[in-house]
Design a protein around this nucleic acid. Structure first.
Lengths: 225, 225
DNA sequence: CTTTAATCCGAGTGCTTGTTCATCTTTTGT
DNA sequence: ACAAAAGATGAACAAGCACTCGGATTAAAG
């Protein structure tokens, strides 16, 4: 990856913005941009970051290298666009999910939320490796254009309302820390299992334990349930 | 990194074994090997995997590129040796730690173990990115020579004895899964926090919450404590 | 002191990979 | 039907990097 840095550089560096060099006006070129993005996703899911070369993107998408660079200023911008599209999609789904939670017990809500987070993590897994980890900082500095500034934020946003919703049954010394552990920490846990034994994520027992840990984090007994 | 694979290759591929090309017999060359290993660690901690080039290792260690290749068959072998040395060191410490646990309450034991794991994770963090994640599979297939086959194993080994030690107060549906979540999952959680806000790991509140989650995972009430 | 083995050196080699550019093809507007 | 704009192409370029090699330097042996 390109790695130039002069003192006059602005942050975030332009080359990681999911910005197209020019707007594809004809349907032909719009299709090309889509094909490139999809090829990128396909390669990342199949071979990870190491397998993602422009030559291979060209090969899989059927779009010539030169054509790719007609629209994308550089390789990272391809991943950035893919990332943006997936985040948009998933944040829609999460917003819908939140409306289904009213009236449910805390444990029940946790179950639903965690099941959703597992799904999102599986999907974002390879992208996180390729892009999010690398440009973590840029995302946190607010380059994001959608409803949430970062992937973290758009998932974390589910936790603070939840804690508020159930605040009468929660008595935890540091609610902010608890929300952080639930939003950020549990995702790390899920990811480490994902790296190791992806199948484990699908078992109900796994989800149960995750809920138990979340309740433990909120200092709530899990004795009977 | 070199990435050749022919059908006749054996597993694990020789080039990732922490094996020296020849034994450094004079003290001069032993010092060189040490300097290279330390430079490797220094660079990984400072600039991560991307910054780890042989040229830079040579520059930092003061050992010429050619000399490096006199002992190390390839770049990965440098990281492998570093990994091996750190694992040896840390596994010693963990063995010592286990002896201090007898007679303590479960919550107290968890506190001590988790505090130790946090320390080890901080140390292994960059190596995991550079090496462990990449060659995860090889490690799991038993190439390891020390008392434990993998980094996972040598930390997980602390959990099963613990669960057995306290089995009269634990009643968890799937003990194996619980041990896995405590040994592997919590480390993932710690790592994700480490990536994000390393300072958080040092607070007592963080450790408290971690203990609470572990107890939750073991289905134990954390009401009074 | 001489010979021999071990160690050190770093410019050079070959390969991978991101990016460009001059040329050719297709679409659009009139 | 024709010109102009937009799009497509892939060989060529440039930079980075892991790794080699033949000769210089230092330590050990006789």
């Amino acid at each position: 990856m390109t790695e130039k840095s002069s003192p006059s550089d602005t942050w975030p560096p332009a080359h990681i913005l999911p910005t197209l060099r020019k707007k594809p006006s004809q349907s032909r070129s719009r299709a090309a941009v889509d094909a490139v993005t999809e090829a990128c996703q396909h390669i990342l899911e199949e071979s990870g970051e190491d397998g993602l070369t422009v030559a291979r993107i060209s090969e899989i998408s059927g779009v010539a290298v030169g054509s790719i660079y007609q629209y994308f200023p550089n390789k990272d911008a391809i991943v950035a666009l893919l990332y943006e599209r997936i985040l948009d999609e998933e944040s829609q789904k999460l917003l819908l999910m939140r409306e289904t939670l009213v009236g449910l017990s805390l444990a029940h809500s946790l179950r639903i939320i965690l099941a959703n987070i597992i799904r999102v993590e599986v999907r974002l897994f390879h992208l996180c490796q390729a892009f999010h980890l690398r440009y973590h900082e840029a995302f946190h500095l607010g380059m994001w254009r959608g409803p949430y500034k970062t992937a973290s934020e758009f998932i974390d946003a589910t936790w603070l309302p939840l804690l508020r919703m159930y605040e009468h049954e929660i008595d935890v010394p540091d609610p902010e820390l608890a929300a952080y552990l639930l939003g950020k920490g549990l995702r790390g846990l899920i990811r480490s299992v994902l790296e190791d034994v992806p199948d484990k994520l699908e078992s109900q027992a796994f989800l149960n334990s995750l809920v138990a840990m979340a309740l433990g984090c909120l200092q709530i007994s899990t004795k009977k349930d």
